[in-house]
Design a binder for these strands. Sequence first.
DNA 1: TATTATTATCGTAATATAACGATTAAGTCA
DNA 2: TGACTTAATCGTTATATTACGATAATAATA
Lengths: 112, 112
Amino acid sequence: MTARKSKYICCTESPNDDITINQKTSDELALLAKALGHPVRVHILKVLSLKESCICGEIVEQINGLAQSTVSQHLKILKEAGLIRGEIEGTAVCYCIDYHGLKRLRVLIAEI
Amino acid sequence: MTARKSKYICCTESPNDDITINQKTSDELALLAKALGHPVRVHILKVLSLKESCICGEIVEQINGLAQSTVSQHLKILKEAGLIRGEIEGTAVCYCIDYHGLKRLRVLIAEI
DNA sequence: TATTATTATCGTAATATAACGATTAAGTCA
DNA sequence: TGACTTAATCGTTATATTACGATAATAATA
């Protein structure tokens, strides 16, 4: 990619005309954002944020009107993205926010 | 929803046991995050960030290997989410980041 | 006015996501 | 051991997303 003049006023000439963009962090950010990209999953994070930690069953109660299997699926997506963690406690599973993941999301957005 | 004792150690009792969560902001955050939840769209934002503003055609060039119509679709999604703006300049359209939208995303994440 | 340049939209196909009920798995307790 | 509790997984269906090529729309220009 070579720098070149643009005939468009809006396209400012800049030393950044030769662009190199970190694809890896783009992918990482996209994955995190995608995990957050559903109202129910945002809601789950808020529940966990307010309650510090919470067993799956109580989360299902908080998410009114959705089947347990559906909530479980959302929890899985959040977990795989690194936004929450789950710890087995007896027959239950206790979920909490993974603040490393959440911070990483903030950092990656800030870097845009 | 009434406050109740939990038999689980992990589930801390807290004054937030009666949870009220703002569904509207959850939806808003989910929409913004969803728009960001694709590597190509993150890439587009980075291109715009580095170049300040950019005509659609140059963005298409930067996104190697995707058809013009596909990139146009991604631009539409970003625009509808309020993450970019487009200004017609002759036959071209000049896109730039909508920093209000991006800031709103940051704020909503920070509020989780 | 006809042509060119640029971008948006349309129609379509392949794939992914979201939701459900039913079932499985694994730990607890009588 | 057998029943119960809790959560994950499976199979399925409906819907949404992503990508493409083709076409339409609009402004600039010859």
